[in-house]
Design a protein around this nucleic acid. Structure first.
Lengths: 128, 128
DNA sequence: CTCTCGATTCGTCAGTTGCGAAAATGATAG
DNA sequence: CTATCATTTTCGCAACTGACGAATCGAGAG
């Protein structure tokens, strides 16, 4: 078992000096609204934070593909490819279709590629 | 040294069967254009794939803050906060200002929060 | 039924990440 | 100068990731 870390006693408020208490509280409550969505957002970005998964999404942007073709596009083993597909599938971005022994994957939500494209152009705009 | 893995000989084309060679090549070349930007994009998403870093960005959206205040907002140690700030700073998203012993951080690029907001609303739209 | 074969899951391992503790830095106060 | 204090860096550790090979699953074919 992963032995619990000796939590640093959040009990007594703080031993960190400085800080503008009123402002900190104001910002804390401003964040509180978004706090609920935040883990999902971080999870979303974590999912996209891998070049192979991005390649999969972009490849599927060109149309439905079977696992072995995706593996060839990525230059990965089928096991590794399947693993990445599973992660994308679990978060609901991919649909799959069974044709005989083959499994075909497709993008389930065009808005995803749009969002990625938006972020990409934001990045491009930044580095001129 | 991290001993090289016994690379599976990309020399001979493939022992994975199946696959539509023409289509795979077409998609490979379609991806080739984006390939250059892709590691940067993945790195960008990796940076955002952490709730504490997202909290920092959102907190700084409310205005400039010193490290210790950010630490209080996050409920983290200053060392940990500084570490996350460093990552955001290294990728050029934060500016900093030195006032006496304190260091004040600010968002350097409003487009970043806009992009995040866009992704967030895309996610929200998906789960209805 | 058994055999084949694409896909998936499992086990393992190296590399990465996030954090706390402690040392180092660097600016101000005395 | 020395002392102090906010911040940063370094180090070590536990947890997580991403990849592979091996084992397994599951849908035809025979």
């Amino acid at each position: 078992m992963p032995k619990a870390r000796p939590v640093p006693q959040a009990a007594d408020i703080c031993n960190i000096p400085c800080f503008d208490h009123a402002r900190v509280d104001a910002i804390k409550s401003a964040l509180a609204d978004k706090e609920e969505r935040l883990p999902a957002l971080a999870g979303f970005y974590k999912l996209l934070g891998n070049a192979n998964r991005l390649r999969i999404l972009m490849a599927l942007g060109e149309g439905e593909l079977c696992v072995c073709d995706i593996a060839h596009v990525l230059g990965l083993s089928m096991a590794a490819t399947s693993h990445q597909l599973k992660l994308l599938r679990e978060q609901g971005w991919l649909g799959m279709r069974n044709d005989g022994k083959m499994v075909y994957y497709r993008l389930d939500n065009p808005a995803l590629l749009e969002a990625i494209k938006g972020d990409l152009s934001m990045l491009r705009g930044r580095d001129e």
